[in-house]
Amino acid sequence: SPPKPKTIVLPPNWKTARDPEGKIYYYHVITRQTQWDPPTWESPGDDAS
């Protein structure tokens, strides 16, 4: 059997959903933003550039 996916701790107000093909995506319940990649926690002042 395939390994279980890691449990991802989502930031507040993010949910997972499935598209009609069964792929998992993520959406923000307030902004209605959707994305394929797991959302990352906002870390103020932490600039990755």
Rank of each mutant, 00 (worst) to 15 (best):
S1F: 15
S1D: 15
S1Y: 03
P2R: 09
P2C: 13
P2Y: 15
P2F: 12
P3H: 14
P3L: 14
P3K: 15
K4E: 00
K4Y: 11
K4C: 03
P5F: 14
P5G: 14
P5L: 14
P5D: 14
P5T: 15
K6N: 12
K6C: 06
K6I: 11
K6W: 05
K6D: 10
T7K: 15
T7N: 14
T7G: 14
T7D: 09
T7M: 12
T7R: 13
T7Q: 12
I8P: 06
I8W: 12
I8G: 13
I8R: 13
V9L: 10
V9Q: 10
V9A: 08
V9I: 14
V9H: 10
V9R: 12
V9P: 03
V9N: 15
L10S: 02
L10G: 03
L10A: 01
L10M: 06
P11D: 08
P11F: 04
P11T: 02
P12N: 06
P12K: 13
P12Q: 07
N13T: 09
N13Q: 09
W14A: 01
K15Q: 06
T16N: 02
T16C: 07
T16G: 08
T16A: 12
A17V: 07
A17F: 03
A17K: 09
R18E: 07
R18A: 04
R18H: 06
R18Y: 10
R18N: 13
R18V: 07
R18C: 10
D19I: 03
D19F: 00
D19H: 12
P20W: 05
P20L: 07
P20S: 10
P20Q: 12
P20Y: 05
P20N: 12
E21Q: 07
E21Y: 03
E21M: 11
E21I: 06
G22K: 04
G22Q: 01
G22M: 02
G22D: 09
G22N: 03
G22A: 01
K23M: 03
K23A: 06
I24V: 04
I24F: 03
I24G: 03
I24A: 07
Y25D: 04
Y25F: 07
Y25H: 04
Y25K: 03
Y25W: 00
Y25C: 03
Y25Q: 04
Y25V: 05
Y26W: 04
Y26R: 01
Y26F: 06
Y27A: 03
Y27R: 07
Y27T: 08
H28T: 00
H28W: 00
H28F: 00
H28Q: 02
H28L: 00
H28V: 00
V29C: 10
V29Y: 07
V29K: 07
V29Q: 11
V29R: 04
V29N: 02
I30Y: 07
I30M: 08
I30D: 08
I30C: 04
I30A: 06
I30G: 06
T31V: 01
T31M: 01
T31K: 02
T31W: 00
T31R: 04
T31P: 01
R32M: 09
R32N: 12
R32C: 05
R32G: 08
R32W: 01
R32K: 14
R32Q: 11
R32Y: 07
R32S: 05
Q33C: 07
Q33W: 01
Q33T: 09
Q33S: 04
Q33F: 00
T34D: 01
T34N: 04
T34W: 08
T34K: 03
T34C: 10
Q35D: 01
Q35K: 05
Q35C: 05
W36V: 13
W36S: 15
W36I: 14
D37I: 12
D37S: 12
D37R: 07
D37L: 08
D37M: 08
P38G: 02
P38S: 04
P38H: 11
P38R: 07
P38Q: 07
P38L: 05
P38D: 01
P39W: 00
P39F: 01
P39C: 01
P39L: 00
P39M: 00
P39E: 00
P39T: 00
T40V: 13
T40H: 14
T40K: 05
T40F: 07
T40S: 13
W41N: 11
W41V: 13
W41K: 15
W41L: 13
W41T: 15
W41Q: 15
E42V: 09
E42N: 08
E42L: 04
E42T: 05
S43C: 04
S43D: 13
S43N: 05
S43E: 15
P44A: 09
P44S: 08
P44K: 09
P44T: 10
P44N: 08
G45Y: 13
G45Q: 06
G45K: 12
G45F: 12
G45E: 12
D46M: 06
D46S: 08
D46H: 14
D46N: 10
D47E: 13
D47G: 12
D47I: 05
A48E: 13
A48Y: 13
A48R: 14
A48I: 13
A48K: 13
A48Q: 09
S49H: 06
S49A: 04
S49I: 10
S49Y: 08
S49G: 07
S49N: 02
